[in-house]
Design a protein around this nucleic acid. Sequence first.
DNA 1: TATTGTTATACTCTATAACTATA
DNA 2: TATAGTTATAGAGTATAACAATA
Lengths: 160, 160
Amino acid sequence: MPKPRSPHRPRTLAPIPYVSGVEYDVLDDLLGYSLRRAQVAMFMAFHEATRGEDITPPRFTSLVVIGANPGLTQSALGEVLGIARSGAKMLVDWMQARLLVERRRPDGDSRAWGLHLTRAGERFVRGMKRRVSSKDRARASRLSAAERRELLRLLAKLAG
Amino acid sequence: MPKPRSPHRPRTLAPIPYVSGVEYDVLDDLLGYSLRRAQVAMFMAFHEATRGEDITPPRFTSLVVIGANPGLTQSALGEVLGIARSGAKMLVDWMQARLLVERRRPDGDSRAWGLHLTRAGERFVRGMKRRVSSKDRARASRLSAAERRELLRLLAKLAG
DNA sequence: TATTGTTATACTCTATAACTATA
DNA sequence: TATAGTTATAGAGTATAACAATA
């Protein structure tokens, strides 16, 4: 019955609340559940840091990785992100449409695209890195510096 | 051009690899990125633990929370999960279709549904809790018991 | 008026599989 | 044959907005 209407906010994601009076049972002891809650909290920090820019975590990661690895191919980008080639293409299309990234044919393989930041892309990534890192640390100010380092260490050990 | 064909695996989610030779720049120092990697790793553990059962993290969480809070309403379930009421309804439809959950009108409010596990639901949740907890701990065996506790503490502090 | 649940719809993300061009 | 990229399509998950029934 409802007519199609207005667009979604691109990514809302409220914090996952601890609802008072609700018993969480085994969830409180699962790393998976705790990780999910923490990740949503950090995603919100990311969202605040990038407010006004139509950027998402995969887009941000792509830009950073291309900046640090000029000439990276789309396939390699997909591998880094853990997504399929078709998804990597769409990300690159977006970055190219925003004039942040250029596709150049690398010497010696005319099937592939080498990805490079444009001047605007470099400037943009520099600013975003600053804003995202700053918010990430602001959120982590609930932890001491030692705790933050320890958390990074434990997460790497778990994921590795 | 491609003809529509075969279905998706419901949730594949490969680990996010560290691609050798690739420079990760600022990502290595972002809690948000590390959390994402760890969360994908733990999601894979969940997926293994629940292999053969058509279950997902929100479904598992729903069943556990309903089991621990009999009579919970759909709205409250949505709040716990951090999703909209319409999404909570679909989850409950799924659980009810599998005869794991019953909707009962609570005394005093005939708008709401009180959610209750069926006998089969209780049995099912008991088994899933065992399997998921076991896999969660197996994955965490990369950490010492003290490290695991510390990680849970730090995550709660970060998300809280 | 506000809340619970329901319905219909829309959008994002990412997967699959087939295709083309090149290696 | 294998790989890089492209295209078309499918599906999961979740949001929005309006509605009916009840509070």
